[in-house]
Design a binder for these strands. Structure first.
Lengths: 238, 238
DNA sequence: CAGAAAACCGACAAGCTTGTTTTTTAGAAT
DNA sequence: ATTCTAAAAAACAAGCTTGTCGGTTTTCTG
């Protein structure tokens, strides 16, 4: 393995540093039940470190040692909270499942509105939001897992049911976000088109000029979606 | 690592089997220059095995031992032809570079024609061909490398220039395939849209019902492209 | 045919990674 | 205060992976 140079900067939150920080919190709290809170803190720290690793190092290089290092926790402590590497990943998967849905909802808030029809600029905004969505850490980390699951049975078995559930809930959210879009098959098609396209653009990190090209494609996409929406609307009204 | 169960079937072309096969060829040839040919054969066998591994096991699990095993070659022999694991990968990259361009050209042959305008059915055919293209082993293997390069500097440094060259040549081919499409910026946009979309669909292995959804999206895409093409055409003729 | 060169093979050392086990430290309970 | 339990740290064994090395076979050349 040869890690990315750029990631060396914050490679090690030292264990001491973390301890000090925790001590401060302890004094502030100074009551019972502190242990449970502390435990939850390290669990969270480990999961967030794992997500960092997935993003910066990729699934294959996300080793227990590196995760612990990123989290500022000893490997022993980590293995105490999570019995195996895959247990961490599994917890991360559940975490991302919820987080991604929440983030999408937040990004898409106020795009459509039951009282007003969709306008072109609102569609453009939704496309832009979708692009932001696939550039979020949560998406990138989750995507890393999805891709790794192609050739890793254990991961696949954990991820497949979660992903199925996610897609289902995701589309439900989409329906809520676009209440005007009543013809379901068209909305499904539009949704798939947006998602596949965004995923494709997001994963084209090596493409020259990716961002400019992405912007151009998103313009075309927004035009297309507006036409599709209008056509559906016409059909519905006829 | 926990490999995919399905791949156990043809995990080991035994070395003996390969030797026998080579001997047969030797008797048939029975001239000078045989050594060079034999050497080229094993080189090729190793590269093809590497591609198989990338597809079935993923970049991270494509170890020297497994590549040699898949190729029916001893690890020693392999290290004789390629000094390091990365040397194999590098050779594979060059191989795929040429192969993918050739395959694309072949798939797109006879789509457009300088003497006839593009029809809707021809555009549909080109979309279908693009989908076949991203489902080819060459694409999948190359994609695996592109994705791994995100977090592997050494791989990145080999792949980045090749990828830049590929995209450039790729688009040149596209221009040849669609001689009628004269407004370049529109062709670029259409091309990017198709490629990003295909990539996104190709990499959505875990999506439920992927193929059906892909078909529906491709229908929408073909409609859109035809409209885009027609609009350009109108502009050009005005 | 004999010597040189290329191709090939199996074994080895060094370094990682994982999960277990053992030891130490911190917190809770009586 | 002491006893018990959870948390954290460190040491350890087993298994992989990589690249190198010494030796063997096959092919080429003179």
């Amino acid at each position: 393995m040869k890690l990315d140079n750029k990631s060396n900067e914050l490679l090690g939150k030292s264990i001491q540093a973390r301890k000090k920080k925790i001590d401060e919190k302890k004094i502030a709290r100074n009551e019972k039940g502190w242990q449970a809170e502390k435990s939850a803190m390290t669990r969270t720290a480990i999961m967030e470190a794992a997500i960092d690793c997935l993003i910066k190092l990729g699934y294959a290089n996300t080793t227990t040692a590196l995760m612990a290092d990123y989290a500022g926790v000893s490997r022993g402590a980590m293995m105490h909270h999570f019995p195996s590497r895959l247990a961490v990943i599994s917890a991360v998967i559940d975490h991302l499942h919820a987080l991604r849905l929440a983030e999408y909802s937040e990004l898409m808030a106020n795009i459509d509105d039951p009282n007003r029809k969709l306008t072109k600029s609102r569609i453009q905004a939704s496309v832009k939001a979708a692009w932001e969505y696939v550039n979020k850490p949560s998406f990138i980390a989750y995507q890393e897992l999805l891709l790794a699951a192609r050739t890793d049975v254990e991961l696949y078995e954990i991820l497949a049911p979660v992903e199925a559930d996610f897609e289902s809930q995701f589309f439900n959210t989409v329906k809520e976000v676009f209440p005007h879009w009543e013809r379901l098959s068209f909305l499904e098609g539009a949704h798939d088109m947006v998602q596949f396209l965004m995923k494709g653009m997001s994963l084209s990190h090596l493409s020259v000029n990716r961002n400019a090209r992405a912007r151009r494609v998103m313009k075309l996409l927004a035009d297309y979606l507006y036409n599709l929406y209008s056509a559906v609307d016409l059909i519905d009204e006829s």
